[in-house]
């Protein structure tokens, strides 16, 4: 390494109209370009943006081993029965050591590989949580513009990091395994507040009943306004498909509820704002990161300054940071809480 990598420039180039027509190969190639950070792809996203916003985006989160992929596969079957087309974005962790990944969620959904109404895309987390959020979000935009009715996002399954997808989904399902205290874990991770539907999967395992009761109890403790959505607790066995039809209906009910109460628009507006912040932050960081490296490199170039660092790295860092951010305005206006 660095090894040569495949040429990601699609040949012939992807046309906007192909995406809007739902051309699978064009859509897949555009996603590939987005993941690789191709600037041309970013431009195309801007053009697709006005055409998106029709899909209902569902997130399925929960700890590893909760059976998320199997559950999604069963949900796809149900949504297909109801004549919806379905897009899936499944994210797997990358190996910290090599940057490679086995994207293994898909294998649990492979029964749908021959179905033209289903598009499944696996993604590697590639380390950066922010970057992932963006790639996953942009992939959803493409699937949305391609005309998929429902998009299901499966994040890595690591609690806190999964919260990021709340800027992306309209309805979030939290999957818990009976007998593992997942409900309590979810409270700690802050997922409880974000979830719209609680799912006790593998309801054949011992402890399923008490897990449901714990969750129902926790949900009731939340202060709920009269006209707000009361998160239900669903019980499923993804392996046998039991309870999955009811779960699919709960998601659709939630969508209907959001539409009826004009919540969906509000969510979409808020999420658009959040996403705009993500975009700006990402773009600024992309530019600033290499600049910081250069500045630090230059600073360490003299023996005197190296000695300063060796003597008190905290002080040396603070002084350099102050100097570098002077142009941002008053020193006090820069967030210094981290010091």
């Amino acid at each position: 390494m660095p090894e040569k990598v495949p040429d990601i420039q699609p040949d012939p180039p992807v046309q906007i109209q192909q995406i809007l027509d739902g051309d699978v190969m064009a859509g897949a190639r555009l996603i590939r370009c987005i993941e690789a950070g191709d600037p041309a792809a970013a431009k195309m996203l801007g053009q697709l943006y006005p055409h998106a916003g029709n899909a209902f985006v569902i997130g399925i989160t929960g700890p590893p081993g909760a059976g998320k992929s199997t559950l999604i596969s069963a949900l796809i079957t149900m949504f297909r029965k109801k004549n919806f087309t379905v897009g899936v974005v499944a994210v797997d962790p990358s190996s910290h050591k090599t940057g490679g990944a086995v994207l293994g969620d898909r294998v649990r959904m492979q029964a749908h590989a021959g179905d033209k109404g289903v598009f499944i895309r696996s993604m590697a987390a590639r380390g950066a949580a922010g970057g992932l959020a963006r790639a996953a979000q942009d992939t959803c935009l493409v699937l949305d513009a391609m005309g998929y009715d429902i998009i299901i996002v499966e994040p890595v399954g690591s609690g806190q990091a999964d919260l990021k997808i709340t800027t992306l989904v309209h309805s979030l399902g939290l999957v818990a395994i009976p007998g593992t205290g997942d409900g309590i874990q979810a409270v700690k991770a802050g997922l409880l507040e974000a979830a719209d539907i609680f799912i006790v999967n593998k309801d054949d395992l011992p402890g399923a009943g008490s897990e449901m009761m714990t969750l129902e109890h926790l949900v009731q403790q939340r202060t709920l306004e009269p006209d707000t959505w009361h998160p239900p607790v669903a019980s499923t066995c993804a392996r046998t498909g039991e309870g999955v039809e009811q779960l699919a209906d709960l998601f659709l009910d939630h969508r209907q509820f959001m539409k009826d109460n004009q919540v969906l628009e509000k969510i979409q507006t808020a999420q658009a704002g959040d996403y705009f912040t993500i975009l700006v932050r990402q773009m600024v960081m992309d530019r600033i990161d290499p600049w910081i490296d250069r500045q630090v490199g230059a600073f360490l170039d003299t023996a005197a300054q190296q000695a300063e660092v060796a003597a008190d790295p905290y002080r040396a860092a603070r002084e350099l940071a102050d100097r570098l951010t002077r142009s941002l305005g008053e020193p006090g206006s820069v967030d210094r809480e981290g010091e």
């Binding site: 199997t70 596969s73 086995v102 293994g104 969620d105 294998v107 649990r108 492979q110 029964a111 498909g241």
Partner: peptide
């Protein structure tokens, strides 16, 4: 009975 969906392996 339907068919089995194999789990991941890694």
């Amino acid at each position: 009975f339907g068919e089995w969906q194999e789990p991941g392996f890694y």
